[in-house]
Write a protein that binds this DNA or RNA. Structure first.
Lengths: 182, 182, 182, 182
DNA sequence: AAATAACCGAGACGGTACGTCCCGTCTTCGC
DNA sequence: GCGAAGACGGGACGTACCGTCTCGGTTATTT
C-alpha cells in the first residue's frame, strides 16, 4: 500500500527517535512529524508504534541480509560458544538493546505482533540452532536449542546477572552435557 | 503513608480492573474511580499503574503467605518436576497470566520496578531452587537453577510452544544430566 | 466541462445525501463515493458542497421548468393569499426545507454563491410579485413586495412562530392596507 | 461548571478571533490556543464554536446591560424610525456584522442554539416593539412588530438592497398605514 | 483503424481539525 | 485542615475530510 519512499522515511524516523528517547515515549505523532508524513499515512500501513518499529527492524535486518547463519566448524562446543557470544553482543548492543526490550514488552500485549515476531525472528533462530544440533546427532534438538537460548534470554530480560566469558563457557558445557554429548 | 483502608481499596480496585480488561488499558483515573478515591490520593502513594499493580500483587502473595517453598522429598527429579509443574500452572493461571505478562513488560522500561521485582520475587525463587540443588550436591547450583527456569520462562514469554507433562519430564531429565546427576 | 452524465450522477448523489442527513454533514468525499466518481472529478467542476447543491437545485427547478408564476385573477387579495400559501408550503416541504435552510446559511459566508442566488432565484421571485402589484397600481411595488415577503421569511428563518391560514389572511390584509389598497 | 476566569478568557479569545478572520474559519483548537486553555476545558462547557460565540455575544450585551430599550416619545412614527435606524446600524456595524451573519447561519442547523437565540434575543426585541405598538393602541401588535422587523431582516440577510433614510421613512409609513394608524 | 487526447476511477499523500482519553497538578468546598 | 471531587493545561490518540497529486484505464474524436 504505502509507497516505498514513504516506508523508508517512516523507518528512518522511527529508528532515529528510538535512538534518542525511551521507546515507550515514541508516539505516532512524533514519527509522523519526524518523517514529514501525515498521521493518516502512518495509520494506513501500521496500527501502532510497535508495528512500525518491528517493521523497521525487519527491514534493516533484511537489508543487511542478515539471516541468522549458524556456524558449523565441526566442533559443536566452539560453534555454540560463538553463537552465545553473538547473541549476547547483539542483546547488549546499545543501539539495539532498548528496541529489543521494548519489542519484548510489546509482544506481551499484542498477539498479532507476537505471532509475526515468532515467525520472522524467533523460529528461524531456534531452527537454525536445532539444525546445527541435529547435524551433531544431538537428540531432541529443538528442546536442547531452547535449553541453550532460554537461560541467556532469562538473564538478559530480567537483568538478573551479567554475562561473562566464563559463564558462557560453563553454560555451553552444561548444555552439551545435558545432550549427552560430553 | 496511605491509610491501610485506602491501600486495601486501591489494591482491590486495581486487581478487579486487571481481571476485566487488558492491563495496558488500566489508568490512574480508572483505579481512582473504581476505588472511590481521588486521583491525588493515588499519586501520594504510587506514581504509576505499574507500581500499584505490583504492590497489589505483593500484598496478595504475602497475604496468602505464599513464600516460594521448594519441596524436598529427597528425590531431586521428583521435586524439580513438582516445581516445574507448579510454575507452569501459576504462569498459565488465567487470573494471573495477564498480570504477569504486563508486569514483565513493565520491567523492560522501569528500572526501579525491575529492581524491586528482582529482590522481592525473582531472587527468592531462584535462591530457593539453587538451595535445593545445593542440598543435592549439584555443582554451580545458581547456574543450574537458571538452566532450569530459563527455558520455561522463554517458552511462556514468547508463547513459542505449549507445555505438557512429557516435555516437563524431559526438561528435568536434561537439567539433571547437565548437572552430572544422571 | 464535466460530461452531462457525470453532472447528473453528481446531482443525484448530492440530493440523495441531502435527503438523509444534515446538509452540513455532506462532504465532497461522500458525494464522490455515492456518485461513483473520483474527488478530482468533483473539484474539476465545483469547489464546494454548497456549489454542488446549489447547482443541483437549479438543475432540478429548471427541469420542472418551475419559473415562479405569479397568479393574476384580477383580485389582488386572492392572488397574494395564494402566493403566500404557495411560498409557505414550499418552505415547509420536508424534502426542501433542510436544503433551503442550509443554502440560506451558506449564503452568509459565500458572497459568490449569494450573488448567484439573488440573480437566479430571489430577484425573479421579488420582481414577479412586484410586477403583479404594479398591475394593481400599487405604489412602490418593489418595496411592498418586500413587505409581503419579509415577514414570511423572518418567521420561517427564525422559526419564531408557525403559519396558519388566519395569519396569512391578516398578513395579506395588512400588506394591502399599507399599500393604500384598502 | 467553568470558572468565571476561564469563561472570560474564552469569550475574549473567541471575539478576538472573530475580528480577524471569517467566522467559519474559527475552530475549537484555535480558540483554545488563543485563550491559553485546553480543548477539554472548552468541551466541558460548550459543544461548538457557535455556542461559544453566542455565549460571548450574550455576555457582552449583558455587560453593557443593553436590554433593548424601545423609545417612547409619544410620537410612534418618530420612535419606529429611531428603532429601525438603530437596528440597521447594529446590523451594519462592521465589528458585529460577520458575527451576526454567522450566528444566523448556525441557527439553521442547530435547534438548541436557535431556541436559545429566540428566547434570549429575538423575543425580547419583538415583545419590546409590540409593547410600544400596544401603547399606541395598534391592533395585533405582535404581527405588526413582525411586519416592521421582517423586511429589514430580509434585506440585510439576503443583501438584496441597501438601506437609506428614505427607504426607512417609507417603510415606517407603510407599517403605520397597515396598522390603520394613518 | 490507429493515434491522440481528454476525461475519469482510484486512492496515496501532507495537512488541519475533530472530539476523546488520560496525564499530573491545582483549586474548591464540605465534613 | 484533610480529603473527595473535579477543573485545569497539556499531549496524544485515532478518525474524517480537505485539496493536491500521480497512476492506469477508458472513451471519443481526429487523422
Amino acid at each position: 500500500m504505502a509507497r516505498e519512499r514513504t516506508r523508508t522515511k517512516v523507518h528512518a524516523a522511527a529508528l532515529s527517535l528510538a535512538g534518542e528517547r525511551p521507546v515507550a515515549a515514541i508516539t505516532m505523532e512524533g514519527i509522523a512529524a519526524r518523517a514529514g508524513v501525515s498521521k493518516q499515512t502512518l495509520y494506513r500501513s501500521w496500527s501502532s508504534t510497535g508495528e512500525i518499529l518491528f517493521d523497521a527492524l525487519l527491514a534493516r535486518s533484511l537489508d543487511e541480509n542478515g539471516r541468522v547463519t549458524v556456524p558449523n566448524s565441526g566442533d559443536l562446543a566452539v560453534d555454540l560458544t560463538a553463537l552465545a557470544t553473538g547473541m549476547i553482543d547483539e542483546l547488549a548492543d546499545p543501539t539495539q538493546e532498548r528496541l529489543l526490550r521494548a519489542l519484548t514488552a510489546e509482544l506481551q500485549s499484542d498477539d498479532a505482533l507476537a505471532a509475526q515476531f515468532r515467525a520472522a525472528l524467533l523460529e528461524p533462530q531456534l531452527s537454525g540452532i536445532s539444525e546445527r544440533l541435529r547435524q551433531a546427532s544431538v537428540p531432541a534438538p529443538e528442546d536442547v536449542a531452547e535449553l541453550f537460548v532460554g537461560p541467556i534470554f532469562h538473564r538478559w530480560l530480567l537483568r538478573s546477572r551479567s554475562f561473562d566469558a566464563e559463564w558462557v563457557a560453563a553454560h555451553v558445557e552444561r548444555v552439551l552435557r545435558s545432550a549427552g554429548a560430553r
